[in-house]
Amino acid sequence: MTDRIILLQAPGGVAQFRIEDQRSDPPGNGEITIRHEAIGTNFLDIYHRQGIYPLPSYPAVIGAEAAGIVEAVGSDVADFNPGDRVAYAGPPVGAYCSTRNIASEKVIRLPDAVSFQTAASSLLKGMTAYMLLEKIYDVREGSTVLIHAAAGGLGSILVRWAKSLNASVIGTVSTSEKASRAASYGADHLIVGREADIVAEVKRLTGGIGVDVAYDGIGGDMLLKTIRSVRPFGTAVTIGQAAGPVPPVAVEELRPGKSLCHPSIMAWCSDIGRYRDAAQAAIRALETGIVAEIAAEYALADVARAHEEMETGRAAGSILLIP
């Protein structure tokens, strides 16, 4: 089988992807070579492809998580051997390829109980959930949280993780089918439909108070509704813009004492200590079943179709690329 690499020639649509045969170099000092078994996709990849989050230069290879088998180790690498099952997530991007050389400190050993597909679909999302639920806001027993797109890849993990912390979860979904999925993940209450009055429903469900913390990966006009769904001195967290750029928000919307936070898992993981803490926490969560459902698998060469499906928002779960 020919190894392949996906090059993004310039920011733009899926036509900017170019598939090439990959020539692999041996791992350098402190690096290992991983043969990918599964590659995860995230909305982050779309933001990189579109240029919303620009890359340093082009052509570029995107992709922030993958799982596979160690094929070779460079000098000064003592923790891994060929044949080890491993995964990684976070910066630097470059996962859309058959094999990859990567610094060994970025690599996490994969327990036998966690499949390559599960790791590739859920590691970065699990790390994001850890950051959001345990670091950005300390969700605990008695907390009430609002999670948008509760049946999606990240949303499903957020629901499951929040429930593991004994929080009460209000989720929003676009269809009754997705509501059934989100309910199976543990959501206590679901607001269904794109035209639902989310603020009114949240207030009704919380006795007029609002939620302690709300997680919004939708963007567009949703952020204002999210802020208005948060209780006084609660926190609204914006983590994406699947529905479009976030418009300016008047500071008066934060009265009385609401916080608005815009964290980045990639920035969080730029510190190797934080990265490894988050990755190990996510692996432990994956072992307990806090995972994203896999909505579809595409061959690496079909990356354009995978991105198109992601952008429709129809997929209830994660989409994988298989080299």
Score class of each variant (00 low, 15 high):
99 T>G: 03
47 Y>E: 15
52 I>H: 11
92 P>W: 11
61 V>M: 08
107 V>N: 04
65 E>H: 11
50 Q>V: 08
64 A>Q: 07
96 Y>S: 06
73 V>P: 00
92 P>T: 15
96 Y>R: 05
81 N>H: 14
55 L>Y: 05
77 V>Y: 01
70 V>N: 00
101 N>H: 14
71 E>Q: 10
64 A>D: 04
53 Y>A: 11
52 I>Q: 11
88 Y>C: 06
58 Y>H: 10
48 H>W: 12
52 I>W: 14
91 P>V: 15
48 H>G: 03
45 D>K: 11
85 R>V: 05
77 V>Q: 01
61 V>G: 03
77 V>M: 02
56 P>E: 12
68 G>P: 00
53 Y>G: 02
58 Y>S: 10
60 A>L: 02
104 S>I: 02
62 I>G: 04
84 D>W: 01
64 A>E: 02
45 D>A: 11
45 D>I: 09
75 S>Y: 06
52 I>L: 15
55 L>A: 11
71 E>P: 07
97 C>E: 14
70 V>M: 01
72 A>Q: 04
86 V>M: 02
105 E>Y: 12
66 A>V: 06
58 Y>G: 08
54 P>C: 14
67 A>G: 06
93 V>W: 13
102 I>M: 07
95 A>H: 06
87 A>N: 03
94 G>P: 09
51 G>L: 05
97 C>R: 15
95 A>Q: 02
80 F>S: 00
96 Y>I: 01
86 V>F: 05
56 P>D: 14
68 G>V: 02
46 I>E: 09
79 D>G: 12
97 C>Y: 03
67 A>T: 07
56 P>H: 13
76 D>S: 11
60 A>Q: 09
100 R>W: 09
58 Y>E: 09
92 P>Q: 15
81 N>D: 12
93 V>R: 03
79 D>V: 08
88 Y>L: 12
99 T>M: 13
46 I>H: 01
91 P>A: 12
95 A>W: 02
